[in-house]
Amino acid sequence: MKQQTAILHEKATLLRQKQVLLGHGSGGKLMHELIEKVFAAHLLPPDMEMLNDSSVFCVGESRLAITTDSYVVDPLFFPGGDIGKLAVNGTINDLAVSGARPLFMAAAFILEEGFAMDDLCRITLSMREACDQAGISIVTGDTKVVNRGKCDKVFINTTGIGIVDNAVKISSELAKPGDLVLINGDIAAHGMAILSAREELEFESSIVSDTAALDLLVKDMLSVSNEIHCMRDLTRGGLSSALNEIASCSKVGIRIFEDRIPIQDQVRGWCDVLGFDPLHVANEGKLIAIVMRDHAEAVLSNMKSNAQGRQSAIIGEVISEHPGRVIMKTNVGGHRIVDMLSGEQLPRIC
């Protein structure tokens, strides 16, 4: 009886929104609800796991990983990058944090009639550069053009395939009490860089997006430890979403320490001014790793020797108390919950 009521309640919750809201794309709770109750419910095979950045499957003796992502960032060009660089790096990172070595990529473009050819070439060149840096090739693609006003300039989808070493076992449900939480640098720069590039907000800063490919960093990390239990790249929804997903999948608690989380002064300052929690703000070149305690120092020093990990830090630990919850010891000495972003914070940041 109780279960039935729960199901009815779930349906009611789903039906309460008659239309798709912008918040359904925020990377937070609304989006998870949409994926779980609509997409996964109808499309995901029952034996597949949800909520990892890529899906890993076997073909013969090989383990392959596949991922896909669409990019609708506004503006197309922003301090530190552009939609093309983002589209390549984002997909590489989704593969990398599953422990996969990225191999090939497909790219699809939806173009608005009237979009400047120069801008399109600039974006394409930027994609090429990002691919070259990561040693990955775009081997197939698709092009569509829609009437003026039916999309905003250009939307890009990229799909990536990678290969996973048989020894690698990384998944969001593998965090264990005692493990430590590592991050490869300062948070929230991408979201605030995008915001600073939006005309309507009129704030000037020198904040630059952190967009970067993390495949080489992950490769190095995997070479020093076979006890990296989970890895997530931090995109929309920020650090809080990634930690909450792991806490919930692994049925553990996670405690982080505010004074250990690297953040640039100006990023923190602008977050304060605009009322954003930096833990919710998007990143495009950051990952967290949940590592067995005894291996953490070795992984950390390895990360710091990598170009994408100079500011790496141990920011927290996995605990058995409060399963499914992330809590933070704040710098002034209090404790609070770190929840997933619940609505939309900033639309179209990636």
Partner: peptide, 23 residues
């Protein structure tokens, strides 16, 4: 890059003074 871990350097978020006020 001017990096700072957490909020440690901010005058009005000083952990030691916070502890003194709490006590």
């Amino acid at each position: 890059m001017n990096l700072n871990a957490g909020f440690s350097r901010l005058e009005f978020r000083d952990p030691e003074r916070a502890r003194a006020l709490r006590d």
